[in-house]
């Protein structure tokens, strides 16, 4: 696997640590941000193959972040996954409408986390 870059955005430090571990072990290059505004700094021209973002975050939430990315010409069509705890909800539809590719349901384990990522990048 080539070193694909994944940006992971979550306001929970422990989740960030956990996800960084899982992704690095799987061979990905990992970037980390703690909210939407922080995440946007990363979209400065470098290659980002996948964005995974939580939805509930202070400052800029996940939905706003997704909408912002879909407006950037270079990143317009990158896959975006969001983290959700609900199996069905308005939040999910809102995120899809904003342009998200799919979602990862919390709680997740290493196996299904990687499996979901494989749906959108390989």
């Amino acid at each position: 696997m080539q070193n694909k870059t994944i940006l992971f955005v979550d306001d929970s430090p422990s989740i960030r640590t956990l996800v960084r571990m899982i992704l690095e072990e799987a061979g990905y290059h990992v970037l980390i941000s703690e909210d939407g505004q922080d995440a946007l700094q990363h979209f400065n021209g470098k290659t980002i193959n996948l964005l995974i973002t939580d939805l509930h975050m202070p400052r800029m939430n996940g939905i706003e972040l997704i909408k912002a990315i879909r407006k950037l010409s270079k990143y317009r069509y990158i896959p975006i996954l969001f983290l959700t705890t609900e199996t069905k909800s308005e939040m999910k539809n809102e995120a899809k409408a904003a342009g998200a590719t799919g979602w990862i349901t919390k709680p997740f384990d290493k196996e299904n986390f990687i499996k979901t990522i494989n749906k959108v990048i390989r």
């Binding site: 879909r70 317009r76 069509y77 990158i78 896959p79 975006i80 899809k96 342009g99 998200a100 590719t101 799919g102 494989n118 749906k119 959108v120 990048i121 390989r122």
Partner: peptide
């Protein structure tokens, strides 16, 4: 489908 970042071929791969 391509506009929200979906790659249909990956689904076939899966």
């Amino acid at each position: 489908i391509l506009k929200n970042g979906t790659r249909p071929l990956y689904l076939l791969d899966e």
